[in-house]
Each structure stands twice: as C-alpha cells, then as structure tokens.
C-alpha cells in the first residue's frame, strides 16, 4: 500500500526509537488515548453523580430549574455538535484515503461547528446572567423559583463550563492537526494525531449527549 503514497505530497515519518514498528506505535497511542478518555469519563462522572444525588433529593427544584433553560438552544447545540462529530469522523476517513484537501476542509468545518457551539453557549450564558441566574450564592433571580434552585444552576454551570473548556481545548487541538494536515504530514500510514484528536472530539460530543437531556429536557 505504501507504494501508492506520493512522497512529494506527504512528509514521510519515522517511528519513535522505542517502538519496533508503526502498528505498535499506533496501537500504543490509541490505548493511551482511550485511557485518557477514561479519566475524562471519571471526571465528568463526578458532576453527574452530584446531579443524580441532588435530583433524587430535590426533584421539584430540578424541574423548576430545567424550565428556565431554553431547550431550543440546547437542541441547536446538540445538532451542531453531532454535525461536527460526523465531519470529524469523515475527515479521519479522508486522511486515511490520502485526500488532503477534503480532509482539511472537513477539519475546518468541524472547527466552525465548534465555534458555533460556543457562540450559542455565549448567548445562553449571557441571558442567564442578565436574569441574575448565577451559580450558588450569587444566584439573584427575581422571578418564581424554588428556594434552593441555585444548586441546580451550580451543577448546570459547573457541568457546562467544564464541557465548554473541553470544547475549547478540542478546537485548539483540531486547529493544530489541520495545520499539520495542510503541511502534508498525515497520510494513510501515519495519521495518529488526527485519530487521537478525533477521539477527543467525539468525547466532547458524547458528554453533551448526556448533558442535553439531563439538564434541558427532563423536567
């Protein structure tokens, strides 16, 4: 297969000294990435545990809190993230097929989607802040609410802010691999960073898949 590679177009790459072949290196990186994703699951798991505990204790509070969120904005963001996930997955496929241009376009489109997500999130946060909905003790909402609704919004802000942080990190990572793709560093025999960043980006999507119904929909 390697004979198909146009060496003018792609920069050949060597396996690190402590690996015996490229397959071993790729599989090691992938296992390492999965272990890292495991730590991310556990990290978000903590917030979800807090969510479940307080939801079982104060169901009315959580229903009242969920009503204050705009599910339409949440749905738009879900669609945006899923789109970006699809384009990211296809971008890896294009890299595997040595189609540099298409891969780059898809990666950049993924970045665009991620930015769209952030913009929608900005409007959501902004609206909440205008109404005085802040986490915890700073909660100064004036309309109807439950007496301890700040707890719901503490969890909402902690969960979404941590998620937004991951989105930003993910975007930076995608920009980094886009740049390297443009330089022609990735081709069918070596695309480990794209694959890793892809896994990371899917994780971001995965967490939102749970955050969306739990925070916005279930009242």
């Amino acid at each position: 297969m390697s004979s198909k590679v146009d060496t003018n177009k792609f920069i050949p790459r060597f396996v690190s000294h402590h690996f015996s072949n490229a397959d071993q290196e790729f599989e090691s990186c992938k296992l390492g990435m999965w272990l890292f994703l495991l730590t991310e699951f556990m990290l978000f798991g903590g917030i979800f545990v807090a969510y479940v505990v307080f939801r079982t204790w104060y169901p009315e509070t959580f229903e009242s809190g969920a009503e204050k969120l705009d599910w339409k904005m949440g749905a738009v963001n879900t669609v945006i993230l899923i789109t970006s996930s699809v384009t990211m997955a296809v971008a890896i496929r294009e890299v595997q097929l040595n189609r540099k241009g298409r891969a780059l376009a898809l990666l950049l489109f993924t970045v665009l989607c991620g930015m769209g997500f952030l913009v929608v999130k900005y409007f959501e946060y902004n609206h909440k802040f205008e109404l005085g909905i802040f986490p915890g003790d700073f909660f100064s909402f004036m309309g109807d609410h439950m007496s301890n609704e700040h707890l719901y919004f503490s969890i909402y802000f902690m969960a979404t802010a941590t998620h937004v942080l991951h989105v930003i990190l993910g975007l930076l990572a995608i920009l980094w691999v886009s740049w390297r793709t443009a330089k022609g560093e990735f081709y069918e025999a070596y695309y480990t960073p794209v694959e890793m960043v892809g896994l990371y980006w899917h994780l971001v999507d995965l967490i939102w898949i749970f955050l969306f119904p739990l925070l916005y929909l279930t009242k």
Binding site: P135, G136, D137, F138, N148, H150, L151, S154, F157, M158
Partner: peptide, 13 residues
C-alpha cells in the same frame, strides 16, 4: 463561587 454543592448552608451535602 459559593456553588453550594457541598455546603449545607446552601442546601448541599
């Protein structure tokens, strides 16, 4: 931020 998840005065545990 005084989020209150662990603070009994704010309803946490």
């Amino acid at each position: 931020l005084q989020v209150g998840i662990f603070d009994p005065a704010l309803g946490g545990d």
